[in-house]
Protein backbone atom coordinates (compact mmCIF):
# COMPACT_ATOMS: atom_id res chain seq x y z
CA UNK A 1 0.00 0.00 0.00
CA UNK A 2 1.40 3.42 -0.89
CA UNK A 3 1.51 5.98 1.83
CA UNK A 4 0.87 9.54 0.88
CA UNK A 5 1.86 12.39 3.22
CA UNK A 6 0.48 11.64 6.65
CA UNK A 7 -1.43 14.86 7.06
CA UNK A 8 -3.00 14.62 3.64
CA UNK A 9 -4.34 11.15 4.17
CA UNK A 10 -8.09 11.34 4.46
CA UNK A 11 -9.64 9.84 7.57
CA UNK A 12 -11.45 7.15 5.65
CA UNK A 13 -8.26 5.61 4.34
CA UNK A 14 -6.81 4.91 7.79
CA UNK A 15 -4.72 1.81 7.71
CA UNK A 16 -5.90 -1.29 9.44
CA UNK A 17 -3.93 -3.61 11.68
CA UNK A 18 -4.53 -7.27 12.31
CA UNK A 19 -3.76 -8.85 15.63
CA UNK A 20 -4.68 -11.98 17.52
CA UNK A 21 -7.03 -11.96 20.49
CA UNK A 22 -7.11 -15.32 22.26
CA UNK A 23 -6.01 -16.99 19.05
CA UNK A 24 -8.61 -15.25 16.87
CA UNK A 25 -7.49 -12.77 14.23
CA UNK A 26 -9.19 -9.38 14.31
CA UNK A 27 -8.63 -6.28 12.24
CA UNK A 28 -9.11 -2.76 13.55
CA UNK A 29 -8.21 0.71 12.27
CA UNK A 30 -4.68 1.84 13.14
CA UNK A 31 -4.71 3.89 16.32
CA UNK A 32 -7.44 1.86 17.97
CA UNK A 33 -6.69 0.25 21.30
CA UNK A 34 -6.40 -3.37 22.30
CA UNK A 35 -9.71 -2.83 24.09
CA UNK A 36 -11.38 -1.96 20.79
CA UNK A 37 -9.82 -5.05 19.26
CA UNK A 38 -11.17 -7.17 22.11
CA UNK A 39 -14.62 -5.73 21.55
CA UNK A 40 -14.30 -6.44 17.84
CA UNK A 41 -13.45 -10.02 18.74
CA UNK A 42 -16.53 -10.22 20.98
CA UNK A 43 -14.39 -10.45 24.09
CA UNK A 44 -15.82 -8.49 26.95
CA UNK A 45 -13.26 -6.58 29.02
CA UNK A 46 -13.79 -5.14 32.48
CA UNK A 47 -13.04 -1.41 32.71
CA UNK A 48 -13.32 1.08 35.55
CA UNK A 49 -11.28 4.14 34.65
CA UNK A 50 -11.94 4.02 30.92
CA UNK A 51 -14.90 5.71 29.23
CA UNK A 52 -15.60 6.23 25.56
CA UNK A 53 -15.79 10.01 26.00
CA UNK A 54 -12.64 10.48 28.12
CA UNK A 55 -8.90 10.25 27.44
CA UNK A 56 -7.64 6.93 28.83
CA UNK A 57 -5.69 7.35 32.07
CA UNK A 58 -4.99 3.63 32.50
CA UNK A 59 -4.84 3.71 36.28
CA UNK A 60 -7.29 1.08 37.55
CA UNK A 61 -5.53 -1.79 35.76
CA UNK A 62 -8.60 -4.03 35.72
CA UNK A 63 -8.46 -4.25 31.93
CA UNK A 64 -4.94 -5.72 31.76
CA UNK A 65 -4.21 -8.38 29.17
CA UNK A 66 -1.22 -10.55 28.42
CA UNK A 67 0.83 -9.41 25.44
CA UNK A 68 3.31 -11.93 24.11
CA UNK A 69 6.84 -10.61 24.55
CA UNK A 70 5.94 -8.12 27.26
CA UNK A 71 7.40 -8.66 30.72
CA UNK A 72 4.33 -7.24 32.45
CA UNK A 73 0.67 -7.23 31.56
CA UNK A 74 -0.52 -4.24 29.53
CA UNK A 75 -3.64 -2.09 29.88
CA UNK A 76 -6.03 -2.88 27.03
CA UNK A 77 -7.83 0.46 27.35
CA UNK A 78 -4.88 2.62 26.34
CA UNK A 79 -2.37 0.44 24.55
CA UNK A 80 -2.63 0.94 20.80
CA UNK A 81 -3.23 -2.21 18.81
CA UNK A 82 -0.27 -3.15 16.63
CA UNK A 83 -0.08 -5.56 13.76
CA UNK A 84 0.91 -9.05 14.85
CA UNK A 85 0.24 -8.61 18.56
CA UNK A 86 -0.61 -11.88 20.32
CA UNK A 87 -3.05 -11.07 23.13
CA UNK A 88 -4.46 -13.37 25.80
CA UNK A 89 -7.38 -12.01 27.76
CA UNK A 90 -8.16 -15.02 29.90
CA UNK A 91 -4.84 -16.49 30.97
CA UNK A 92 -4.15 -17.34 34.60
CA UNK A 93 -2.00 -14.20 34.94
CA UNK A 94 -4.72 -11.98 33.53
CA UNK A 95 -7.43 -13.48 35.69
CA UNK A 96 -5.21 -13.19 38.75
CA UNK A 97 -4.42 -9.51 38.30
CA UNK A 98 -8.01 -8.62 37.46
CA UNK A 99 -9.25 -10.49 40.51
CA UNK A 100 -6.67 -8.79 42.73
CA UNK A 101 -7.54 -5.30 41.48
CA UNK A 102 -11.22 -5.95 42.21
CA UNK A 103 -10.37 -7.50 45.56
CA UNK A 104 -8.13 -4.56 46.50
CA UNK A 105 -10.91 -2.11 45.71
CA UNK A 106 -13.46 -4.15 47.61
CA UNK A 107 -11.17 -4.22 50.62
CA UNK A 108 -10.63 -0.47 50.58
CA UNK A 109 -13.86 1.11 49.38
CA UNK A 110 -17.61 0.97 49.84
CA UNK A 111 -18.63 -0.54 46.51
CA UNK A 112 -22.29 -1.08 47.43
CA UNK A 113 -23.40 1.30 44.68
CA UNK A 114 -20.87 0.27 42.07
CA UNK A 115 -22.93 -2.37 40.34
CA UNK A 116 -20.62 -2.98 37.40
CA UNK A 117 -17.61 -3.47 39.63
CA UNK A 118 -19.69 -5.83 41.76
CA UNK A 119 -20.61 -7.86 38.68
CA UNK A 120 -17.00 -8.18 37.59
CA UNK A 121 -15.97 -9.04 41.15
CA UNK A 122 -18.37 -11.98 41.07
CA UNK A 123 -17.14 -13.09 37.67
CA UNK A 124 -13.49 -13.04 38.75
CA UNK A 125 -14.14 -14.46 42.20
CA UNK A 126 -12.77 -11.50 44.14
CA UNK A 127 -12.88 -12.07 47.88
CA UNK A 128 -12.04 -8.85 49.77
CA UNK A 129 -12.60 -10.62 53.08
CA UNK A 130 -9.21 -12.30 52.60
CA UNK A 131 -7.63 -9.15 54.02
CA UNK A 132 -9.58 -9.16 57.23
CA UNK A 133 -6.65 -10.97 58.79
CA UNK A 134 -8.46 -13.95 60.27
CA UNK A 135 -5.59 -16.16 59.23
CA UNK A 136 -3.15 -14.49 61.59
CA UNK A 137 -4.98 -15.65 64.70
CA UNK A 138 -1.98 -17.56 65.91
CA UNK A 139 -0.24 -16.28 68.96
CA UNK A 140 3.49 -16.74 68.82
CA UNK A 141 3.90 -18.12 72.31
CA UNK A 142 0.72 -20.15 72.27
CA UNK A 143 -0.69 -18.12 75.14
CA UNK A 144 -3.65 -17.03 73.08
CA UNK A 145 -2.64 -13.53 74.04
CA UNK A 146 -3.23 -11.65 70.84
CA UNK A 147 -2.26 -8.08 70.23
CA UNK A 148 -5.00 -5.95 68.76
CA UNK A 149 -5.49 -6.27 65.03
CA UNK A 150 -7.08 -3.20 63.51
CA UNK A 151 -8.19 -4.89 60.27
CA UNK A 152 -7.39 -3.65 56.78
CA UNK A 153 -7.10 0.07 56.24
CA UNK A 154 -10.09 1.47 54.38
CA UNK A 155 -10.91 4.78 52.77
CA UNK A 156 -12.88 6.64 55.42
CA UNK A 157 -14.56 9.87 54.45
CA UNK A 158 -17.68 11.71 55.61
CA UNK A 159 -20.38 12.38 53.00
CA UNK A 160 -19.94 15.90 51.71
CA UNK A 161 -23.33 17.55 51.28
CA UNK A 162 -22.71 21.18 50.46
CA UNK A 163 -25.51 22.12 48.08
CA UNK A 164 -28.83 20.92 46.67
CA UNK A 165 -27.42 19.47 43.45
CA UNK A 166 -25.01 16.65 44.20
CA UNK A 167 -23.18 14.94 47.04
CA UNK A 168 -19.68 13.52 47.34
CA UNK A 169 -19.13 10.28 49.27
CA UNK A 170 -15.44 9.66 48.82
CA UNK A 171 -15.38 6.44 50.81
CA UNK A 172 -16.79 5.01 47.57
CA UNK A 173 -14.17 6.70 45.40
CA UNK A 174 -11.82 4.30 43.58
CA UNK A 175 -9.69 7.15 42.19
CA UNK A 176 -10.53 6.45 38.58
CA UNK A 177 -9.74 10.08 37.67
CA UNK A 178 -12.87 10.27 35.50
CA UNK A 179 -14.36 13.22 37.37
CA UNK A 180 -11.05 15.07 37.21
CA UNK A 181 -10.89 14.55 33.47
CA UNK A 182 -14.51 15.53 32.94
CA UNK A 183 -14.01 18.70 34.98
CA UNK A 184 -10.74 19.45 33.23
CA UNK A 185 -9.26 18.88 29.82
CA UNK A 186 -11.76 16.40 28.52
CA UNK A 187 -14.96 18.40 28.84
CA UNK A 188 -15.56 21.22 31.21
CA UNK A 189 -12.20 23.05 31.41
CA UNK A 190 -13.12 24.26 34.86
CA UNK A 191 -10.45 22.37 36.84
CA UNK A 192 -12.40 22.61 40.09
CA UNK A 193 -11.13 19.26 41.37
CA UNK A 194 -7.87 17.37 41.23
CA UNK A 195 -6.14 14.50 42.95
CA UNK A 196 -4.40 15.61 46.14
CA UNK A 197 -2.18 13.70 48.53
CA UNK A 198 -0.18 10.60 47.71
CA UNK A 199 -0.48 6.84 47.94
CA UNK A 200 -3.41 5.38 49.83
CA UNK A 201 -4.20 8.86 51.15
CA UNK A 202 -4.69 10.32 47.68
CA UNK A 203 -8.14 11.87 47.35
CA UNK A 204 -10.21 13.91 44.93
CA UNK A 205 -10.19 17.44 46.31
CA UNK A 206 -10.89 21.07 45.67
CA UNK A 207 -8.03 23.30 46.85
CA UNK A 208 -7.72 22.91 50.62
CA UNK A 209 -10.93 20.87 50.45
CA UNK A 210 -12.91 24.11 50.01
CA UNK A 211 -16.66 23.60 49.96
CA UNK A 212 -17.97 23.21 46.43
CA UNK A 213 -19.97 26.46 46.35
CA UNK A 214 -16.74 28.31 47.20
CA UNK A 215 -14.71 26.46 44.59
CA UNK A 216 -14.43 26.88 40.85
CA UNK A 217 -17.29 24.38 40.35
CA UNK A 218 -19.96 25.58 37.91
CA UNK A 219 -22.31 22.67 38.62
CA UNK A 220 -22.33 21.13 35.20
CA UNK A 221 -22.63 17.72 36.83
CA UNK A 222 -20.34 16.16 34.26
CA UNK A 223 -18.24 14.62 37.01
CA UNK A 224 -21.35 13.02 38.52
CA UNK A 225 -22.33 11.61 35.16
CA UNK A 226 -19.03 9.77 34.70
CA UNK A 227 -18.53 8.50 38.26
CA UNK A 228 -18.70 4.69 38.26
CA UNK A 229 -19.18 4.15 41.98
CA UNK A 230 -21.79 6.58 43.22
CA UNK A 231 -19.11 8.53 45.04
CA UNK A 232 -20.57 11.50 43.21
CA UNK A 233 -24.34 11.37 43.21
CA UNK A 234 -27.18 13.71 42.30
CA UNK A 235 -29.07 14.92 45.35
CA UNK A 236 -32.30 13.49 43.92
CA UNK A 237 -30.84 10.01 43.82
CA UNK A 238 -29.09 10.40 47.17
CA UNK A 239 -32.27 11.59 48.89
CA UNK A 240 -34.44 8.88 47.30
CA UNK A 241 -31.92 6.21 48.30
CA UNK A 242 -31.93 7.53 51.84
CA UNK A 243 -35.62 6.72 52.12
CA UNK A 244 -35.34 3.49 50.14
CA UNK A 245 -37.22 4.93 47.18
CA UNK A 246 -34.53 4.76 44.48
CA UNK A 247 -35.92 2.26 41.98
CA UNK A 248 -33.98 2.23 38.70
CA UNK A 249 -36.15 -0.60 37.39
CA UNK A 250 -39.21 1.61 37.63
CA UNK A 251 -37.58 4.46 35.74
CA UNK A 252 -38.29 5.36 32.15
CA UNK A 253 -35.88 7.29 29.96
CA UNK A 254 -37.10 9.90 27.51
CA UNK A 255 -34.82 11.52 24.96
CA UNK A 256 -35.34 15.21 24.28
CA UNK A 257 -33.37 18.26 23.17
CA UNK A 258 -32.37 20.89 25.69
CA UNK A 259 -34.36 24.09 25.14
CA UNK A 260 -32.17 26.56 27.01
CA UNK A 261 -29.97 27.57 24.10
CA UNK A 262 -29.36 26.81 20.45
CA UNK A 263 -26.57 24.27 20.82
CA UNK A 264 -28.95 21.33 20.65
CA UNK A 265 -27.76 18.99 23.38
CA UNK A 266 -29.55 15.68 23.64
CA UNK A 267 -31.01 15.05 27.08
CA UNK A 268 -32.08 11.72 28.55
CA UNK A 269 -34.70 12.39 31.20
CA UNK A 270 -34.87 9.60 33.79
CA UNK A 271 -38.38 9.60 35.21
CA UNK A 272 -39.63 7.79 38.28
CA UNK A 273 -43.16 8.22 39.60
CA UNK A 274 -43.74 10.96 37.04
CA UNK A 275 -40.86 13.03 38.35
CA UNK A 276 -37.53 13.67 36.67
CA UNK A 277 -34.92 12.14 38.96
CA UNK A 278 -31.83 12.46 36.79
CA UNK A 279 -30.70 14.02 33.52
CA UNK A 280 -27.94 12.52 31.44
CA UNK A 281 -26.75 12.89 27.87
CA UNK A 282 -25.71 10.00 25.61
CA UNK A 283 -21.93 9.57 25.57
CA UNK A 284 -21.98 9.01 21.82
CA UNK A 285 -23.92 12.18 21.05
CA UNK A 286 -21.91 14.27 18.60
CA UNK A 287 -22.65 17.56 20.35
CA UNK A 288 -22.24 16.66 24.01
CA UNK A 289 -20.15 13.47 24.14
CA UNK A 290 -22.23 12.94 27.25
CA UNK A 291 -21.36 16.25 28.84
CA UNK A 292 -23.85 19.04 29.71
CA UNK A 293 -24.02 22.41 31.44
CA UNK A 294 -25.86 23.38 34.61
CA UNK A 295 -29.00 24.36 32.73
CA UNK A 296 -29.42 21.13 30.85
CA UNK A 297 -28.33 19.06 33.83
CA UNK A 298 -30.27 20.72 36.62
CA UNK A 299 -32.62 23.21 34.95
CA UNK A 300 -35.38 20.56 34.80
CA UNK A 301 -36.29 21.42 38.33
CA UNK A 302 -38.57 24.08 36.86
CA UNK A 303 -40.77 21.36 35.47
CA UNK A 304 -41.83 20.51 38.99
CA UNK A 305 -41.77 24.03 40.38
CA UNK A 306 -44.37 26.77 40.10
CA UNK A 307 -41.74 29.20 38.85
CA UNK A 308 -38.21 28.38 37.80
CA UNK A 309 -35.48 29.60 40.07
CA UNK A 310 -31.83 28.91 39.44
CA UNK A 311 -30.75 25.83 41.36
CA UNK A 312 -29.43 26.80 44.74
CA UNK A 313 -25.95 26.02 45.90
CA UNK A 314 -26.49 27.04 49.49
CA UNK A 315 -24.22 25.15 51.82
CA UNK A 316 -26.03 22.69 54.02
CA UNK A 317 -23.17 20.85 55.67
CA UNK A 318 -23.90 17.44 56.95
Amino acid sequence: MTRSGESLRPEAETERVTLSIDGREVTVPEGETILAACTAADVETPTICWAPNLTPVNVCRVCVVELEGSRTLVPACSRPAEAGMQISTDSERVRHSRRMVLEFLGSANDLSQASEIADWSRIYGADPARYDGGASDVSADGSGDLPERPGPERVREPVRIQDDLYIRAYDRCVLCYKCVEACGDDAQHTFAIAVAGRGFDARIRTEYDAELPDSACVYCGNCVAVCPTGALQFRTEFDLRAVGEWRPDDQSVTRTVCSYCGVGCNLDLHVQDERIVKVTSPADHSVTSGHLCIKGRFGWQYVHAPAFEPPTTSATEH
Binding site: V59, C60, R61, V62, S97, M100, V101, F104, L105, S107, A108, Y131, G133, S136, R149, P152, E153, V174, L175, V195, G197, R198, G199, F200, D201, A202
Partner: peptide, 24 residues
Protein backbone atom coordinates in the same frame (compact mmCIF):
# COMPACT_ATOMS: atom_id res chain seq x y z
CA UNK B 1 3.12 2.64 51.14
CA UNK B 2 4.49 6.11 51.82
CA UNK B 3 6.15 6.51 48.45
CA UNK B 4 3.52 5.02 46.13
CA UNK B 5 2.13 7.85 44.04
CA UNK B 6 -1.31 6.32 44.51
CA UNK B 7 -2.22 6.38 40.86
CA UNK B 8 -2.76 2.70 40.13
CA UNK B 9 -4.78 0.25 42.20
CA UNK B 10 -2.30 -2.67 42.44
CA UNK B 11 0.35 -0.47 44.02
CA UNK B 12 -1.86 1.98 45.94
CA UNK B 13 -3.73 -0.76 47.77
CA UNK B 14 -1.27 -3.64 47.33
CA UNK B 15 1.55 -1.88 49.20
CA UNK B 16 -0.80 -1.19 52.11
CA UNK B 17 -2.06 -4.78 52.27
CA UNK B 18 1.50 -6.06 52.06
CA UNK B 19 2.55 -3.82 54.94
CA UNK B 20 -0.41 -4.99 57.02
CA UNK B 21 0.54 -8.61 56.46
CA UNK B 22 4.18 -8.01 57.30
CA UNK B 23 3.11 -6.24 60.49
CA UNK B 24 0.86 -9.14 61.46
Amino acid sequence: CDESCGQCVPCRVGTVRQHELVTQ
